[in-house]
Design a protein around this nucleic acid. Structure first.
Lengths: 155, 155
DNA sequence: TTGCGTGCAAAGGTTTTGCATGGCA
DNA sequence: TGCCATGCAAAACCTTTGCACGCAA
């Protein structure tokens, strides 16, 4: 955590720029790689991993693991907003990842800590369930939907 | 989801027995495989995965994903323990599973449903974090940390 | 006998590592 | 000039899938 975080390189800037421009959504290494390649700014996969690791260590980026089969998700953390903690809802039907920025959850977290001595880690905790769209669809159509695809947009 | 859960085989019994005997800790496929092989009860990896998948579907076993590098973790759920109605806290350090019978959580669940339209599934949802004992230990023991994860206690 | 269950190996995907080269300071 | 950073490919893992054979019902 010293002053020096390594050299300032084109690749580092490119990745950090991408992260800050997508701070409202979760991104995967694959997503970053594809996007940058499409923009003509190809960066090697290993380099992306290495930078992301460093950024996570420095607290600039957070790492989420939703599923063991899917790749890890990363998200930029705004440095000035000290308490940018939020939890996540993951729909078991469509795989959508929803950000839950809600005071109720934070209250719960502090309650659990003071009453139960347990420090909840919002980085790792994911609420599983069924999202609004899917429960509405469930009532209307009953087609087989076996998609395990992730579409993690929506901020 | 018919009544039949498949044939009763030696492998299925072996795996289920292992799960029930380790219900207090989370286990990995690798751990199961190694243990059974050591006991002279070798079961193929694919078979373990296939059974675990079924058990998860049936709600007999829970699946956790702590890290994308590590494999998934599994844990047996006692059918008569009423675990379907309350939430769980899992310590990332010691793997302990804590039953959280707390009105605050239920309130949160109904709030999330009414306000955010998301129906949380208590069976799948686990709060990750650090338990009281482990956070006390962390303060006392500050020995070598070659662990590349973990140091993320903020807030 | 029928058809699911099993084991092995191969495939598919994500992340890490080794090594020679390139680029920042 | 001295190192760190990068890229490529291979390796290391975890998980799934295909296929032939075994075994429960």
């Amino acid at each position: 955590m010293g002053g020096s975080n390594g050299y300032k390189t084109k690749q580092r800037d490119t990745i950090l720029k991408y992260m800050t421009e997508h701070k409202d959504s979760h991104v995967t290494v694959n997503g970053i790689s594809d996007y940058l390649t499409g923009q003509g700014n190809h960066v090697g996969t290993a380099t992306i991993y290495r930078h992301l690791d460093k950024l996570v260590e420095q607290g600039i980026v957070r790492k989420y693991t939703v599923d063991s089969t899917t790749g890890a998700c990363f998200q930029y953390v705004e440095p000035d907003s000290g308490c940018h903690e939020h939890f996540h809802l993951k729909c078991e039907k469509c795989g959508k990842l929803i950000h839950l920025e809600c005071s109720h959850v934070k209250e719960l977290a502090s309650h659990v800590y003071s009453e139960h001595g347990f420090a909840i880690d919002p980085l790792r905790t994911v609420f599983y369930g069924i999202c609004r769209e899917c429960s509405e669809n469930e009532n209307n159509v009953q087609s087989d939907n076996n998609s395990q695809k992730e579409n993690m947009n929506n901020g």
